[in-house]
């Protein structure tokens, strides 16, 4: 079992005619083909104005709604450039995509506020933006993570950071743990799905036995997640917070990773998580071990 990505997932790629969009659609298709031989998981793409053409055997459609009607897709992976990305996400929601995974980095905050408002009326779930995507090892990956570092297993990963998720999956592999599903929620201040949504899904997923939560400085999402863990999560949880040495007032790459007004520090977040029984690793090199400890406890 898993969350978000299953054997019934069918994906179209918005922005498939761009260099990055096509490259990753190809990578994702190859991974899915290995996991589910003979099944078409990545069924096409959307670029307005290029409908009716194909790129590397992917049929291209003018709109998401047309792509859904012709391919039966229920999921969209979005690589549309930042100025147009919010519109692309809203289009996917309007077309009834159940899951929208937005990889694009650099969407203006005001645009994301419009997206959030638009999604309130929709049943679509948005993952990201500015994230590595979602992978259910052995089934499919929707995103830019290297497939081979993820092994099927029983740990759910929730992370704000892309490469740190890879690092975590790799470390889990070294202590003999695989993942049910790994989800990158993205490093932007306004995103589609937060820790609490995913903690709930992993808690309810019979295929998940433990949860690894990777956070970073900025905001208070980790503290709120800690409250939720206290009240509603019975599965073991391990965690790590990046940015213990980050100086205040400086944006550390991610738009959301900034310590402001004395709030959002790594120390506060680590303390909040430890307080509710999460096994928190001080070192980014100890995430796998922390998860193992949590599972043994």
């Amino acid at each position: 079992m898993s969350i978000l990505v299953s054997r019934s997932t069918r994906v179209i790629t918005q922005g498939i005619t761009g260099r990055t969009g096509l490259f990753h659609a190809q990578q994702c298709r190859a991974y899915a083909a290995e996991c589910q031989p003979g099944v078409d998981v990545f069924v096409g793409g959307v670029t307005p104005g290029k409908g009716g053409t194909t790129v590397d055997d992917f049929p291209v459609f003018n709109s998401v709604i047309e792509a859904r009607e012709k391919t039966g897709a229920n999921t969209s992976m979005v690589f549309v450039p930042p100025p147009f990305c919010a519109d692309a996400i809203l289009e996917a929601a309007d077309a009834g995509m159940e899951l929208i995974v937005a990889i694009t980095e650099g969407i203006p905050v005001m645009d994301m506020l419009r997206v959030r408002r638009g999604l309130e009326k929709s049943s679509s779930r948005l993952i990201g933006p500015n994230c590595p995507g979602v992978i259910t090892p052995g089934i499919a990956k929707i995103g830019i993570m290297p497939g081979y570092i993820h092994r099927p297993g029983t740990i759910g990963i929730i992370s704000k950071s892309g490469t740190l998720t890879y690092e975590a999956a790799w470390q889990l592999g070294r202590v003999g743990l695989g993942q049910s599903t790994a989800v990158g929620i993205g490093g932007d201040p306004i995103n589609g799905t937060n820790y609490i949504d995913l903690l709930k899904m992993f808690q309810d997923d019979p295929g998940t036995e433990g949860i690894l939560m990777i956070g970073e400085i900025g905001g208070s999402a980790e503290q709120e997640a800690a409250e939720y863990i206290r009240s509603s999560v019975t599965k073991p949880v391990a965690g790590f917070i990046a940015g213990q040495t980050a100086p205040p007032g400086k944006r550390m790459g991610h738009a959301g990773a900034i310590i402001s007004g004395g709030g959002g520090t790594a120390a506060e977040k680590m303390a909040a998580l430890r307080d509710v029984g999460v096994v928190v690793s001080d070192s980014p090199g100890g995430m796998g071990e922390a998860m193992k400890t949590a599972m043994a406890g």
């Binding site: 950071s161 740190l164 991610h254 980014p284």
Partner: peptide, 24 residues
Amino acid sequence: VNGAGLAMSTMDLIKLHGGEPANF
């Protein structure tokens, strides 16, 4: 480093081992 999260973590790790990062 590639990736903001890993870059911050790398700084953290250097500090944990008694060094001081010169940059992110």
